[in-house]
Write a protein that binds this DNA or RNA. Structure first.
Length: 584
DNA sequence: TTTGCCCCAC
C-alpha cells in the first residue's frame, strides 16, 4: 500500500523542489531499497520539464548496483536532452555493466530510448549498432521498437534501410506506416510518400491524425491539391479536424498549393484552439503569396489573441515585408525583436539583409552582415550580390563574390551575376576572367526542376527535358507560345545567358527551361477545358527572369492564370502582370 | 511492480 501511495506522490511532483523533498524522504524512510520507487523517481527527475538531468545522474551515481530501469531512466533523460549523443555513451556503459551483472540487461526500452537519441543526434553508425543489438536480442518482433528503429533510419536519411525494415517487419501498426510516410516526405520523396498513403487507403489500414498530417506534408511539397483536398475530406469525415496540428497542416497544404484564400477559410472557421504555429502558418502563407497587408494585420493581432510571438512569427512578418519591399516596416520589426525577447537568428538576418539590399540600401545591408554576432551564412552574401546586380554596384558585387569564393561556395548563379555586372559595364576582360574561374573551380549547378499536376499525376520536368511521353507536342506548344507573345512585344532576356554564343542560340538556351515546359504542358492539358482553372507549377529554384516575362505575356494572350511557386514565393500571373509586381 | 513508436510553421 505504501508503495502505491509513494508512486502517486512521485507522479504528483510538478516542481524540482518537490522531487528533492520526496527524495530525502525516501532516503530517510529507506524507500530507496525499493528499486521500483527509485527508478520511478529517477525517471521523473531526468525527463520531466521541471526535472534536472544532472541531479538524476547524481542520484544514479549513488546506486551501488544500478538495475535495468535505473539505466533506462538516465538514457531516456539524455535522449530528450540538448545532448542526445550522450545517451549512446550511457548505452555503451550499460552494455559493459550488463555483461558482468545479471541484475541489469539491455531491454526493448533501453533500445527504444537510445534509438530516439540516434534520431535526434543524427547518428547513423549508432543506429546501425542498435539494429544489431535488436537482432541479437531477438527484439525484432517488437512492433513499437521496430518502428522506432525505422524512424531512426529515416531521420538519418537512410530511406532504403527504412523501407527494407518496413517490408520485413513481422507486425506493422499505423505508426510504422506513419514513420515511413514522414521519412519519405522529409527525404524529398513526397511522391512515394503519397503512394504509400494511397496504399493504406486501398489496403484498408486505419489512418490516424498523424497519418494525415504526414500525407498533407507530401501534398504541400508537391503542390498536389487534388490529393490534398481528398485527404481533407477524409479528415472531416473522420472527425480529425478537432486536432490543431491537423488543421495547421491543412492550412499549410492550401497555401503551398497556391490557394491562400482557402487556407484562410480553414484558419477562420476552425473550431479547435489556434496555437502559435497556426498563426505563424497563416502569416507565412500570406507572406509568400505577396499579401503583406493581410500577413501583417494578423501579426499585429497576435498579442490580442493571447499569443506571444516567437522566432517564427517574426520570420513570417519579415518575410511579408521582404516580398513586398516594406523596408521601413521590416527594419523596425527587426530592430524591436530583441527587446520583445526574441533574438534574431540567421533567417531573420537573411530577411532583413535581402530587404535592404533590394531597396538599394546595399551599404547598410553590408554593414549588418559584417556586424552580426554569428558567422554569416553564404545566402546573405548571395542576397547582396544579387541586389548589386540589380542596382549595378560593381564594388559591392566584387566584395560579395570575393566573400563567397573565400567561403568555398561555387554556385553557378553567383558567377553568372558577377559576369552580368561586368558585361553591363562593358568590362569584357573581367567577364572572361569570371568565365575562366567557373571552369577551374568546378562550379556546381543545381538542376532546375518543375512539377505540374495533371489528370491526377505529378509530371516532372528538367531543363531541355525530352523524357516526357508528349515532349514533341510540348516543344511545339512552346514554339507556338513564343510566336504569339512576340506579337505582344516579348523580347528574350538573353542577357541572362552567360555563354559566348549568338543571340539566337541564347534564346534557345532559355526557351526550354523546366518551368516553361511545365507551363506549356499545363496549357496543352487544359486547352478547351470548360473549367477556368489556372496552370499551377512548382519549381525547386527561383524562377528565371526570362520565364517571368514569358509567363506575363502568356497569361494575357492565352487568358489563363499561371501560378508558379518558386523556392521562396508565389508568382501569380494574370492579364499580363504578376502578383509580385516584379519585385522578387 | 512502469515506462517505449509515428505529426504542423522555419
Amino acid at each position: 500500500m505504501a508503495r502505491v501511495y509513494m508512486e502517486t506522490l512521485i507522479q504528483r511532483c510538478v516542481t524540482f523542489s518537490q522531487i528533492k523533498q520526496l527524495q530525502s524522504h525516501f532516503l530517510t524512510a529507506g524507500h530507496f531499497q525499493s528499486s521500483f520507487l527509485r527508478s520511478r523517481l529517477l525517471d521523473r527527475c531526468s525527463v520531466s520539464s521541471f526535472g534536472d538531468l544532472s541531479h538524476a545522474v547524481q542520484i544514479f551515481r549513488h546506486i551501488p548496483k544500478p538495475l535495468t530501469n535505473d539505466w533506462n531512466a538516465i538514457i531516456r533523460g539524455f535522449a530528450a536532452s540538448s545532448q542526445p549523443s550522450l545517451a549512446f555513451s550511457w548505452f555503451c556503459s550499460m552494455l559493459r555493466q550488463a555483461s558482468s551483472s545479471s541484475m541489469c540487461r539491455v531491454d526493448a526500452l533501453t533500445c527504444s530510448f537510445t534509438l530516439k537519441a540516434c534520431a535526434r543526434a543524427l547518428c547513423s553508425s549508432a543506429t546501425a549498432q542498435l539494429h544489431g543489438q535488436i537482432n541479437r536480442r531477438g527484439l525484432f518482433a517488437d512492433a513499437l521498437l521496430c518502428t522506432t528503429l525505422l524512424d531512426a533510419y529515416s531521420k538519418n536519411g537512410d530511406l532504403s534501410t527504412a523501407q527494407k525494415l518496413f517490408d520485413e517487419m513481422p507486425v506493422r501498426d499505423v505508426a510504422s506506416w506513419n514513420a515511413l510516410i514522414a521519412g519519405l516526405v522529409a527525404g524529398n520523396r513526397a511522391n512515394e510518400a503519397l503512394e504509400l498513403y494511397k496504399r493504406m487507403e486501398t489496403e484498408g489500414i486505419s489512418r490516424n491524425e498523424i497519418t494525415v498530417v504526414a500525407a498533407l506534408g507530401a501534398c504541400s511539397h508537391l503542390g498536389a491539391i487534388k490529393e490534398g483536398e481528398k485527404i481533407y475530406d477524409y479528415i472531416k469525415d473522420a472527425n480529425l479536424d478537432q486536432n490543431v496540428i491537423v488543421v495547421n497542416a491543412t492550412i499549410d497544404m492550401y497555401t503551398k498549393c497556391g490557394f491562400v484564400d482557402k487556407a484562410f477559410q480553414v484558419f477562420d472557421q476552425m473550431t479547435s484552439k489556434k496555437s502559435v504555429v497556426t498563426w505563424n502558418t497563416m502569416i507565412m502563407g500570406f507572406a509568400v503569396h505577396g499579401e503583406a497587408q493581410r500577413a501583417l494585420e494578423i501579426f499585429e493581432k497576435l498579442n490580442h489573441n493571447g499569443i506571444t510571438p516567437d522566432d517564427v512569427s517574426y520570420l513570417a512578418a519579415l518575410t511579408a515585408c521582404r516580398h513586398a519591399g516594406l523596408v521601413e516596416y521590416g527594419t523596425s520589426i527587426f530592430n524591436n525583436m530583441a527587446s520583445n525577447g526574441v533574438e534574431p537568428n540567421m533567417k531573420h538576418y537573411g530577411c532583413v539583409v535581402d530587404l535592404l539590399s533590394r531597396a538599394g540600401r546595399l551599404r547598410e545591408a553590408h554593414d549588418i552582415i559584417c556586424s552580426m554576432p554569428m558567422l554569416p551564412d553564404p545566402v546573405l552574401w548571395q542576397s547582396l550580390l544579387g541586389a548589386s546586380e540589380i542596382h549595378k554596384n560593381v564594388e559591392m558585387a566584387e566584395i560579395a563574390s570575393r566573400k563567397l569564393i573565400e567561403m568555398g561556395v561555387n554556385n553557378d548563379g553567383d558567377f553568372v551575376l558577377l559576369s552580368n555586372i561586368y558585361a553591363a559595364q562593358g568590362r569584357w576582360k573581367d567577364v572572361g576572367r569570371v568565365r575562366d574561374d567557373m571552369e577551374t573551380k568546378q562550379v556546381k549547378k543545381v538542376p532546375g526542376l518543375s512539377y505540374i499536376e495533371a489528370q491526377g499525376t505529378i509530371h516532372k520536368f528538367y531543363n531541355s527535358d525530352k523524357s516526357h511521353q508528349q515532349w514533341r507536342e510540348i516543344y511545339e506548344k512552346i514554339d507556338e507560345i513564343r510566336f504569339k507573345i512576340r506579337e505582344d512585344g516579348y523580347v528574350a532576356q538573353t542577357g541572362l545567358v552567360l555563354h559566348d554564343i549568338g543571340e539566337e542560340e541564347k534564346e534557345n538556351a532559355l526557351c526550354y527551361h523546366s518551368e516553361k515546359l511545365a507551363v506549356a504542358y499545363g496549357l496543352m492539358m487544359i486547352d478547351g477545358a470548360e473549367e477556368e482553372s489556372p496552370v499551377r507549377v512548382i519549381k525547386n529554384l527561383r524562377i528565371c527572369g526570362d520565364c517571368h516575362v514569358v509567363f506575363k505575356h502568356t497569361s494575357k494572350i492565352y487568358k489563363r492564370e499561371i501560378i508558379v511557386r518558386d523556392r521562396v514565393r508565389f508568382h501569380r500571373f494574370k492579364d499580363g502582370s504578376c502578383s509580385c509586381r516584379d519585385y522578387w
